[in-house]
Simulated assay, not measured.
Amino acid sequence: MKVSIVGGSGYTGIELIRILLNHPKVEIDKIVSESNKGKKVSELFQNLKNIFEKEFIGVSNLEVELKDSEYIFLAVPHKAAMEYVPMLLKMGKKVIDLSADFRIDDFEVYEQWYKENHVAKEYLEEAVYGLPELNREKIKKARLVANPGCYPTTVILGLAPLLSEKLIDINTIISDSKSGVSGAGKKCTATTHFSETNENFKAYGIASHRHTPEIEQELSKLAKKDIIISFTPHLIPMTRGMLSTIYSNLISEQTEEEIVELYKTFYKNEKFVRIVEVVQTKNVRGSNFIDIAVKLDKRTNRIIVTSAIDNITKGASGQAIQNFNIMAGFNEMEGLNLIGYLP
């Protein structure tokens, strides 16, 4: 099956290429990057030298260039994706969008948090939120999948069993989340270059991070009630990896052992969810796994969930390929049988 990537020059683009090159049922057709057109992909990403020597193409004639590709991955920033989706769907393509443009159901909420006018709002109702562990059946039938954000993946999967069983006070949820610097993307900024991030640890987007409405939207669907949470992201001085520590008050008589068993049962058929005793980012680095640990603080009657992913893989490109596999009817692990690399 031929697939193409629009926006192939960023971190999520190179991660899509890395994984898809090992997918036994996929041929990468076109890699689109207007700023790099005519240049070999291996010139920009030298780890692909002698492995993948295609050239980037520009955006001027995509109706012709992408005609042979059945699936399109959009690895472009928010706002850019919504400009491509109408054209691609009209061409009969199936689209996995890694941006935020189709994750939020209500365009007014999107516009409030992203400060952009949504120019393809007519497709919001059709778009399926691509969290496979919760929306697999809808993903199977979708032609437009909105790939989740990295922070939301850790929080939603971290809380899903508790919310589904109504075990926590939904008014007490706090997520304290940390991300490696690659989460900010490839383009260097005044706050993400080496001398600013090295040996530094900071909170950012306090009470204002754009992933907040996405998290609240999906948690509310699980709880069948409106949920508002406290979400604070942090930047840590490492390249890739993400860990969330999520707090909530328990409202039922449960032991820690019973809650751990609940998680194991809830995710028993999920190949990419591992229930562990202690989560560490190094154990998921380079893989599509999410590791989740659960502890009950009896003194405060508070449940503490920790979850870790590789923010570029399960938090972006790996999850996009997991969604692609579901849409295409492939085994969900095709191309994704990736073991976290140690040390």
Rank of each mutant, 00 (worst) to 15 (best):
V279K: 08
I290D: 11
K268R: 13
D297Y: 00
V276M: 04
F289M: 13
F266P: 02
K295E: 03
K268F: 14
K271H: 15
R274W: 03
T281G: 03
F272G: 04
R285W: 06
E277Y: 00
I290C: 11
T300A: 06
L296C: 01
T300N: 08
Y267I: 08
G286E: 07
Q280E: 12
E270L: 05
K282A: 07
F266E: 06
R274S: 07
N301K: 04
Y263Q: 13
R274A: 09
N288M: 09
L296D: 01
K282Y: 08
R299N: 03
D297S: 00
V284M: 09
L296I: 01
N283G: 03
I290F: 10
I275E: 04
S287W: 05
K298L: 04
F272I: 09
E261F: 10
Y263S: 12
N283F: 09
T265E: 14
F289S: 08
D297I: 00
T300Q: 06
V276E: 04
R299G: 00
V278C: 03
E270M: 08
K295M: 01
E261Q: 15
E270P: 04
A293S: 14
N269C: 06
R285F: 10
K295N: 02
V294M: 03
K268V: 15
T265L: 13
T300S: 11
T281E: 11
K282L: 06
T281K: 05
V273F: 06
R302C: 04
E261M: 12
D291L: 11
F272C: 07
D291M: 09
A293C: 06
K282V: 10
E270F: 06
Y263T: 12
V284A: 07
Y267P: 06
N269Y: 10
V279F: 05
K271D: 15
E261N: 14
V294G: 01
V294H: 02
D291T: 07
F272W: 12
R302Q: 10
F272E: 08
L296V: 01
D297N: 02
V273C: 05
R274D: 12
Y267S: 07
N283M: 11
V273W: 05
N288F: 06
K282M: 07
V278F: 05
K282P: 02
R302T: 12
R285K: 10
Q280K: 10
F289L: 15
N269E: 14
D291Y: 12
N269S: 12
V273N: 05
K264F: 11
R302K: 05
T265N: 15
K264S: 13
V294R: 02
R302P: 00
T281Q: 07
R299F: 01
V278I: 11
N283S: 11
K298Q: 03
T300D: 11
V279P: 04
I290R: 07
K264P: 11
V294S: 02
F289T: 07
D297L: 00
E261K: 14
L296N: 01
E261S: 15
A293W: 02
R302H: 01
S287R: 04
S287H: 04
K264C: 12
N288V: 13
F266C: 09
I275Y: 02
V276P: 01
Q280C: 03
F272S: 10
R299I: 05
R302W: 00
L262G: 10
I290V: 14
F266R: 10
N269M: 05
A293E: 07
F266K: 07
T265R: 14
V294K: 02
K268W: 12
R285L: 13
N269A: 10
V284E: 08
